[in-house]
Design a protein around this nucleic acid. Structure first.
Lengths: 139, 139
DNA sequence: GTGTTTGCAAAGTGTTTGCAATTTA
DNA sequence: TAAATTGCAAACACTTTGCAAACAC
C-alpha cells in the first residue's frame, strides 16, 4: 500500500476534469467549498458569501453558472422546497429530506430509513427519474 | 330526502364564510373558478388570466392575496416543485404527486397508491406536519 | 492563438408591499 | 360608518443573460 498524502487540490481538479469542466480558479475554489467537508444543502447566495469570506473573488453570476454546471454534470442535485429559492445538495445518492418549515432548513434522511413498498407505475410513455420523499416538520 | 338544486353561488359563499373570509366579489369569483370543477394545480398567473378570460376584473395582487388566504384557511395547499413558481392544489386531502419535469405539470397520486411503511421519527421537539412523495417523471 | 470562462450590469420572473380608493357588513 | 378588501405601481428577491475582458490549454 503506497503512502498517501491528502491532496485536496488535485482531487478537486480530477473531479472537475472527469465531469468535463475546465478546472478554472473559480470552479476549483467553489468545488472545494462544496465537496471538502460533509454533505450540505446550500443556496447560491450562501455559497457566494462563503466564497467572499474565504477571500475567493468570484461573482454571483459565476456561482449560479457553476452550480448549474455541477448539477448538469451530476456533481450536485438541485432541490426546491421553498418558493423562490433553490438549494443544491452535495449528496447525489439515494436519500430523502426533512424540511423544517419555519427555518427553511433541509436535513438528509438515509434511503434505508424510508420504506417505500408501493408506487404507481409511471404514466404510459414516461419513466420515473426519481422519487422524492419530503418529511415536513413544523419548526 | 329534500329536493336539492345546485346553487354554486351560495355554496361558494358558505365555503368562504366558514373559512372566516368575507365573500367579496373577487373572492367569490376566484373560489368558483377554483372549486367548481375537478381538482386542479394552478399558479397565480394562470388563475389571473382565467379570471380575465371569464370577464372577472381582478388584479394579480388580489389573486396572490386570495390564494394565500385560501391556503391559510385550509381551502388550498401550496406546492413547490419547480424553482420560482408556486402551484396551488385544490385537493387538500391525503395524496401525492407525479411531476412532469419537462412540462412542469403536476398530477395527483391517490394516497392508497403509495405504500409508505417506514418513516424516520421527527427530530426531537418537532412534529411531522406532512409527508410528501413526489414521483418525478422525465417528460 | 483559440475557444472557454468570467464579471459586470442590465434585464427578467414571480411575488410582495404600501397606500389611497372602494366595498362590505 | 367602521373595518376589511382591492388595485395600482413600486419594490423585492432570486435568477438569467449579453457582451467585452481575462483566462486555460
Amino acid at each position: 500500500m503506497p503512502m498517501v498524502t491528502v491532496r485536496p487540490y488535485s482531487q478537486a481538479i480530477d473531479r472537475l476534469r472527469s465531469a468535463g469542466l475546465r478546472p478554472t480558479r473559480q470552479r476549483l475554489a467553489l468545488a472545494r467549498l462544496l465537496f471538502d467537508g460533509c454533505d450540505r444543502h446550500i443556496s447560491a447566495e450562501q455559497l457566494h458569501s462563503e466564497a467572499l469570506t474565504s477571500n475567493i473573488r468570484v461573482s454571483l453570476a459565476t456561482v449560479y453558472n457553476t452550480l448549474h454546471q455541477f448539477t448538469d454534470a451530476g456533481l450536485l442535485r438541485e432541490i426546491v422546497v421553498d418558493a423562490g429559492r433553490s438549494y443544491f445538495d452535495t449528496n447525489t445518492g439515494d436519500h430523502h429530506h426533512f424540511f423544517y418549515e419555519k427555518s427553511g432548513r433541509l436535513c438528509d434522511i438515509p434511503a434505508e430509513m424510508v420504506g417505500l413498498t408501493k408506487l404507481p407505475e409511471a404514466p404510459a410513455g414516461f419513466n420515473i427519474s426519481r422519487v422524492e420523499v419530503i418529511v415536513r416538520v413544523d419548526g
